[in-house]
Amino acid sequence: MPRKIWTGSINFGLVTIPVGLYAATEDHTIQFHQYQRGTADRIRYKRVNETTGDEVGYNDIVKGREHGDGIITVEQSELDEIAPGRSRTIDISTFVDLGEIDPVHFQKTYWLAPNSKEHYRPYNLLRRAMEQTGQAGIATFVLRGKQYLTAVRADSDVLALNTLYFADEIRDPADLVGDQPEQSKPTDKELQMATTIIESMSGEWQPEAYSDTYTERVEALLAEKARGGEVQAAEAPPQPTDVIDLTEALRRSVDEARKGRKPAPSEDLSELTKAELDDRAKQLGIKGRSKMKRAELEQAVAEAEQGSRRAS
């Protein structure tokens, strides 16, 4: 059962619904400790007074900011006192069409659940009403000392709360791309070919079809090192497409798309076992494959397949 990280209520109109807030996602990133190189000694961090060098207990630390020639400190209790709604309400101020919210504003997702059985009716009333109208409730609330702009929306059998970035937290993309030269605009032919590639690669969104392969590789790396095995480097990323070769790269991609194949760079040979690589090399007629190390075999197969595609 997920741990409740916040307790409060949703307010819309004169209706108040007590709810609990739960994290909707979990992080599977592999966590490492730090050790001094060549030893099994853990590295630890301490909170120390930069003037005396003495370690300071957590309860003796307060927040503060420089102000003029001095420092103003603030207790957590003082921050809680000024929090809107005393940090315990999600006040919906307006309802908007969910599709109108630019995805760049979405930050993190949480689930909202009623605190008790007697609150299920008003909870489900709000969820069903937003589900039928396609509307999301815009609200603010305070979590862990920070005020968030949020969108409360219907999601399957629960209410979801998405924290949103405020407008002044969104960077202007024009600052990144600036004024673009006239020659940077694609030609009609290039645009038509790129559209054909996208259409050939289109499919339904199936999140279960994707997995964190990097974490899996880190686990495999640790297991291989524990056995004293050799670490195999992954395939290098493809080189950027030269502007001069753009049309040719598009043409080849369209050709492969029409043959029912996705562009070849999407295949990662490092995910194949040594036996699978041997079989692929045998089919391609690669000589001397039995004496090759895995990395050499991987490179030979990649080069042979690339040559085969060019010939076709």
Rank of each mutant, 00 (worst) to 15 (best):
L149E: 09
N11T: 15
M1S: 14
A275E: 07
S266P: 00
E118M: 09
I43Q: 09
M292Q: 05
E66T: 15
A234S: 13
L159A: 07
S9W: 03
P173E: 00
A40V: 07
I198G: 01
R42E: 09
S312A: 12
G64H: 15
Y110A: 01
T25R: 11
Y120T: 15
Y110H: 07
E26Y: 08
G85V: 09
E131T: 05
S200M: 10
S9K: 11
R3F: 03
W111L: 15
E55W: 11
H119E: 10
H28C: 05
S93E: 13
D172E: 03
A223P: 04
E276N: 01
Y22L: 10
E204P: 03
G178I: 00
D175E: 13
T213W: 13
N49P: 10
T213Y: 12
G229M: 05
D175K: 12
L159T: 08
P18F: 00
L126N: 08
K262F: 12
L272W: 05
Q34T: 15
S87M: 05
D242L: 08
N124P: 01
A302D: 11
L191Q: 03
P238N: 01
D41L: 04
R261M: 14
K274C: 01
R3E: 09
T273P: 04
R251C: 02
A113H: 11
L222H: 02
L277Q: 00
E248D: 14
I30F: 05
E199H: 06
M130P: 00
D255L: 06
R47G: 06
T25Q: 11
E100A: 08
Y165I: 03
D268L: 10
I61K: 08
K293I: 02
P237T: 06
R128H: 12
M193G: 01
E303T: 07
I170Y: 05
H33F: 14
L297W: 00
G8L: 03
K46M: 10
Q192V: 01
V62M: 07
Y214A: 07
L250P: 04
Q239Y: 01
R86S: 13
L277E: 00
A194I: 04
M130C: 00
S184D: 08
Q107V: 04
I170F: 07
G85E: 13
E248N: 12
D97Q: 12
V48N: 07
P237E: 08
M130V: 01
E235K: 03
A167S: 14
D175V: 07
D60R: 15
